[in-house]
Design a protein around this nucleic acid. Structure first.
Lengths: 201, 201
DNA sequence: GGCCCAACTGGAACGTGTTCCTATTTTAGA
DNA sequence: TCTAAAATAGGAACACGTTCCAGTTGGGCC
């Protein structure tokens, strides 16, 4: 730990370190947004973030870690942004569809960035398990909250499993869109079909 | 077309070309089976298949194409092997679960190979759309046949959509297993949950 | 058989992710 | 304030996917 009296789970280090980390992730997002996965080149990220290549690797041990961490930060942002906004819809299915379509639309508005982040996420191997798990938890949280907007404190195992299945379908649909196998409309359609099937009660 | 009287959709070329292609895919499978995605190195594949590097690239324009083509061949094999075997189960859900678990078990018995093929599949971009689409069709076919074993000739759009959703969940579960995020047991569990939810009638 | 063109070989070369090393700067603690 | 340790800068070096090229081979056609 950097400070002896910190109890935080995540130790983000000194202000300078937090700043470097932020600059690196900002550069990553900027480059990804411009040219997608291939345009995120480690030398370029280092240069744009004004750090040395070795420093970049000290903060993020691989390009995949870097991109998945960027995804995590973006996802956290949009998740908290969504948190205190009322979710439209009378049924759980409607609310989940609303939430997912909203999120999907957000991602589709920056296709290159989405391509970069999604491909990194899907390509990640076991060494990125921790970051991947974080993102998965965020997604599940987002979905269960859409299912039970008023703080349902007795989430059953079934609820979580359904949320996870929906998350899986959403990811697959997103991959299909990113790789050009399906259009934005089809992506929305797929999600709607799956959610309606899974949340019909 | 290489022969004037061939009506086959796929033109596989001369016997020598078919042989080279087979040797290349065999080498790919062998290397992947030993060491996974990273162990499939283009120079190594070329050497083991006894072709020049340039020839390898003439047959498969990238490592991803190569691995997805290998996946396609393996999948075709196991799909035809499954075709004339009776599928156990009284309900559609049971039969689909049986089919998927059987396939999953087969893949889990060769983890390195599965890791290589799955990661290539998920990393593929638009240029591999054709091969990816083939695999997707095979999967859907396999699933709809499990749903309707006795040649249901009126497959509705709904049936196909359900099959696709199940396929998506299966892929996500497989990715989770490959990346060490979930155990084999959890993978089976996830599939079972999803199928039961989607095929309860 | 001889010719021709496409395919193949062998290998050099290039780009980018990753590793490594040394000198310099910053930070934490006495 | 001074010192030791940690972090950073700057850049060379290496690995592997990919491209490219000059020379050779093989298969179809006259």
């Amino acid at each position: 730990m950097s400070s002896a009296n910190s109890l935080a789970v995540e130790d983000l280090g000194s202000a300078a370190q937090r700043d470097r980390r932020k600059r690196i992730l900002d550069a990553t997002i900027a480059l990804a947004s411009e040219g997608g996965f291939d345009a995120v080149q480690m030398r370029g990220v280092a240069e744009q973030a004004d750090v040395a290549l070795g420093t970049l690797y000290r903060y993020f041990p691989s390009k995949i870690h870097l991109l998945v961490s960027a995804l995590q930060r973006e996802f956290e942002r949009s998740e908290t942004a969504l948190r205190d906004r009322p979710v439209e819809g009378d049924t759980a299915a409607d609310r989940v569809i609303y939430t997912l379509k909203r999120t999907t639309r957000g991602m589709q508005s920056d296709p290159k960035l989405t391509e970069a982040l999604t491909r990194a996420f899907m390509f990640a191997d076991a060494s990125v398990a921790a970051e991947i798990h974080q993102v998965g938890m965020l997604l599940t949280t987002m979905l269960t909250r859409a299912m039970y907007p008023e703080g349902h404190d007795t989430l059953t195992e079934d609820d979580v499993q359904i949320a996870r299945v929906i998350g899986d379908v959403w990811l697959s649909a997103l991959v299909g869109w990113v790789t050009g196998r399906s259009t934005a409309a089809e992506t929305g359609q797929q999600i709607e079909v799956a959610v309606k099937l899974l949340l019909r009660d």
